[in-house]
Amino acid sequence: MNLKRTLSATLCAAMAFTACAALTGCGGEASEQVIIYSNADDEAVESMKKTLDANGYKGKYVFQSFGTSELGGKMLAEGTDIEADVITMSSYYIESAQAEYSMFEDLTFTVDTTDSYPTYYAPFLANQGAILVNTDVLAESGLTAPTSVKDLANPEYAGYLSVVDIQGSSTAWLMIQSLISEYGEDGTKDILTEIYTNAGAHIEQSGSGPIKKVRAGEVAIGFGLRHQAIADKEEGLPVDFVDPAEGNFTLTESLAVVDKGESTNPIAMEMVQCIIENGRENLMTYYPVPLYEGENADSNAVSANAKTFPEPLTVELLEKHRNLSESCK
């Protein structure tokens, strides 16, 4: 009986360790499929999948989604050791990983963008910033909707406003860009200080913080991504958006191929080319900002007042703007 017990315990342990070892073994095996890591929304991923499937790549790739911070952490920690062959991520993030590890290959096809971009990535969509409002809460509290980002500094909005902290997420950058390009750095400092006072406990670290709070009715007004508000509005929620007078600024998301030397999967580059050349039309139904020559925005879907920041959106610029934002808290 006791012998049996000892035996079974030992056996149990042995089996477990073997299983563990076996798992190690099979996890390491190489795969022919192109692995694509992405921080993009469901809609964007589905749209890219559709394009790949329609062009004969069905079953030849795997999409793996991550949150922006997790994917960012993985890229900066693993460099070229990352499992992915292709990464879709915020452009400035790709730049900063490239600066750290030179981990991406130059594109082998020509990218016909309206603005100029580095040679190792191709933008596939652009997110636009906008003011988000909860129409129910606005009405309940007798507030009028703001028309500009500057309006968010009005004391009447104190306690009703939620914004993103640029330390936590680059969604905040869209708001700060609009202020700096309109009022200069000094003007921005004054306005941003007031905005942070108004937001108080609702300065969010996550880019989706304001839309969550607006949707939950915790606040009446937020600053976030335009397409999130559109989606909520279409679902019939009391959520709407305001295109601010300063203009809607954009941040692009891009595709890049990881340089794995000898073992770089040759199909990876083909797939990126395929998404850029055949997938943009579909992507623009969700993210209607034109990025390539010959693309036309649907005037209903895209803000008439889309703007781009006068300087290139580099990591250094983000750092500078972050420091400015910190001085306003």
Binding site: S69, E70, G72, G73, L76, S96, D165, I166, Q167, G168, S169, S170, A172, W173, G200, A201, H202, I203, Q205, V315, L318, E319, R322
Partner: peptide
Amino acid sequence: GNINLLSTRLYNEMLGSLP
């Protein structure tokens, strides 16, 4: 809210907009 905490600081340094 606007309470400054070590764990939030850690997150922002490690995985914020500028990791």
